[in-house]
């Protein structure tokens, strides 16, 4: 598969979304929580609490929607500032109760529009980056589809970042890159190659820890082993004192592009 094939696969509407993963992993135990307590409830972000085996977990996902109606309602997974602020509110709540945080990333990017700018899209992402870095509770991010730039990293300042084999994570969309580089967005497949955005590329660059085989909807065995893998990671990180965990998280990012 070429890099652009991966991009196409990551964008496929047939792909499982955050809600599918949450249902498969948490089942009946999931309770959705709403709102940022400032402005509103952004449906591009689905969030709540639930049990993963015997561990209480806060789970937050960027949700694209599973059919046309849902996709409209979810704004195709492009969150507004209130979405990122809802996520942060619930992450702070998780820290208070020393619950681990699981995030699912699937977005073409943070929404760009008048309202998003007026309500501080840049500020909301910046605040998440800063606060997540210091959270004294374990954070794990799983990329299940598209990881579009600032809108993706705003939920991915984590102890570990995992990616599905057909997920991508990039600083800019291949189309955007091609139109800057060659003034021709149809050269997106070439740009996708250059950007090094596949799970394999990112693993080689030391940006992610694990590549996962992608489950289908009825692949219960795969979901069981995914659940086990997540639980084991949480158990390991719950044993580390919060301050120490935040320091390790900072060093995880600190080493990327370190000059000395």
């Amino acid at each position: 598969m070429s890099a652009y094939d991966k991009v196409t696969a990551a964008r496929s509407t047939k792909k499982l979304t955050s809600v599918d993963y949450i249902n498969a992993l948490f089942g009946e135990s999931f309770i959705e929580l709403h709102g940022d307590r400032c402005y509103g409830d952004d449906k591009a972000v689905v969030a709540g609490v639930g049990m993963l085996n015997n561990i209480p977990v806060t789970v937050i996902g960027l949700e694209k929607g599973r059919n046309t109606f849902e996709r409209m309602e979810r704004n195709f997974g492009a969150a507004h500032p209130e979405g990122y602020r809802k996520a942060l509110r619930l992450m702070k709540q998780a820290e208070k109760f020393h619950r681990p945080i699981l995030t699912f990333v699937d977005t073409s990017g943070a929404f760009c529009g008048i309202g998003a700018e007026e309500r501080g899209q840049g500020h909301s992402i910046a605040t998440n980056l800063m606060e997540m870095m210091a959270l004294k509770t374990p954070i794990l991010s799983v990329f299940i589809g598209e990881g579009g730039s600032g809108g993706a990293i705003a939920l991915a300042v984590a102890d570990e970042v995992w990616m599905m084999e057909n997920a991508v994570y990039s600083v800019i969309s291949p189309e955007g890159c091609a139109s800057i580089l060659w003034k021709d967005s149809s050269k997106a497949p070439d740009a996708a190659e250059c950007l090094k955005l596949t799970a394999k590329d990112l693993f080689d660059l030391g940006v992610i820890e694990r590549i996962l085989r992608e489950p289908t909807a009825d692949d219960h065995k795969m979901f069981e082993s995914l659940k086990l893998l997540i639980c084991r990671t949480f158990e390991k990180n719950l044993a580390i004192p919060g301050d120490e965990l935040a320091r390790i998280r900072y060093n995880r990012f600190r080493k990327i592009g370190k000059q000395d």
Partner: peptide, 17 residues
């Protein structure tokens, strides 16, 4: 900076930390 791909994006988190 697009030319350094994902490594540039990571600088957002690093500087914020």
């Amino acid at each position: 900076r697009m030319q350094e791909g994902i490594l540039s994006l990571m600088q957002m988190a690093k500087t914020s930390g």
